[in-house]
Amino acid sequence: MPTQAEPDGPAIELRDATKRFRSSSGGVHTAVRNLDLTVRAGEFVAVVGPTGCGKSTTLSLVSGLEPPSAGEVLVHGRPVEGIPAGVGYMFQNDAVLPWRTVLDNVAAGPRYRGAAKRQAREQARDWVRRVGLGDFESYYPHQLSGGMRKRVALAQTLVNEPSILLMDEPFSALDVQTRGLMQDELLRLWAGDDPLGEGGGAAVVFVTHDLEEAVVLGDRVVVMTASPATVKAVFDVPLERPRDAEEIRLTPEFLEIYREVWESLREEVQIARERGAGNAA
């Protein structure tokens, strides 16, 4: 995947980052606390943690949608003040506009950034083809399956050639088979023309509740603590690339790293459950 030229150094840095929100009752909720995380250019980092622990808030800090209450957030060595250039964000719910065709949905990004209509449509057509929807560019979203809509959303994000790709559980609503196909599609597009799958300089932060998905996709898996979130542990994933999302799950190497990460994650999931039970009582 082509990316913008960037200076040397980490793509993303969070240094002792904390985010607090004012609650409706007038109190203060701390979503993430003393968070330290570095993501290199070309690195695929998967983030897992208990439900509601602050994983999505971490993406909001990197994207500039939320400022930190304390600490620092840097993108390509510069403090985040507003939405940084070169950041693509793919949400759990897609932003496909129902009144636009597949092609026009994907062309909207380049048009917004000042590209002429013809140029924007040429860029969009290329990415629609890359995500396997070349025969569906004139279709409307209601004519597409859930998996096809996700392909449109992926093309919408990648057509802008981001140097940083933030993904917040983008495949969680899909059935198991379609999710596996989308995982393979993402890895293929992320790797670009590089057979080793180093990502061509694009850094990816992928939030998921699915530990299998995290291990299948990531170079590293970051385990977050129960709320308020901070980094508990970081695990390297020693699985060769390119990877087949379904076949890799059957290997001893996959099972070994999965068990190792789960031992760390399980403790935090149990803490979150106990807190939830206590609040319910």
Rank of each mutant, 00 (worst) to 15 (best):
I83S: 14
P170T: 02
V106I: 08
A226R: 04
V207K: 11
V261S: 08
Y89K: 02
S69N: 12
G201D: 02
G77C: 06
R15D: 09
L61F: 06
D36G: 12
V207A: 05
T101G: 11
E260V: 15
R149K: 14
D219Y: 08
M224S: 04
R241V: 01
A107L: 02
R100Y: 13
V28A: 00
D94W: 14
K55M: 09
Q156I: 04
V131T: 05
A70M: 06
L174H: 01
V39H: 00
V234H: 09
R243I: 00
R40Y: 04
A11T: 07
Q92D: 06
D236R: 06
L158W: 04
G180K: 02
Q143Y: 11
A46W: 01
D8Y: 08
D219H: 13
A245W: 01
W262C: 03
F21H: 11
E246W: 12
A11P: 10
R273L: 14
S163I: 03
T38R: 12
A11M: 07
R15H: 11
R179L: 00
A233D: 12
E260C: 13
H209K: 10
P84W: 03
G114T: 11
G71T: 08
I12E: 04
G42R: 00
E137T: 14
A280Q: 15
R22G: 11
E240P: 14
A108P: 13
Y139M: 13
P68F: 02
L211F: 03
G109V: 13
Q92K: 06
D193I: 06
H76W: 14
D135Y: 12
R220C: 02
Q183L: 00
P141M: 06
G82K: 07
N105E: 08
N34V: 08
A85D: 15
P228N: 06
G54N: 08
G27H: 11
A120L: 05
N105P: 12
R121Y: 04
T38E: 14
T178Q: 02
F254A: 09
G71K: 05
G200D: 04
V215D: 05
T57A: 08
I248Y: 01
A245D: 01
G147T: 00
G27Y: 10
E263G: 15
G27M: 07
C53Q: 09
D244Y: 11
E13T: 11
P195R: 13
G114N: 11
D236N: 14
E161W: 05
S24K: 15
D8S: 15
F235E: 04
V207E: 07
V45E: 03
D210E: 10
V215A: 03
A281R: 15
G86D: 09
L133Y: 13
D210G: 03
K150C: 01
S264R: 12
V269W: 12
Y112C: 14
K19V: 04
G147A: 00
F91N: 08
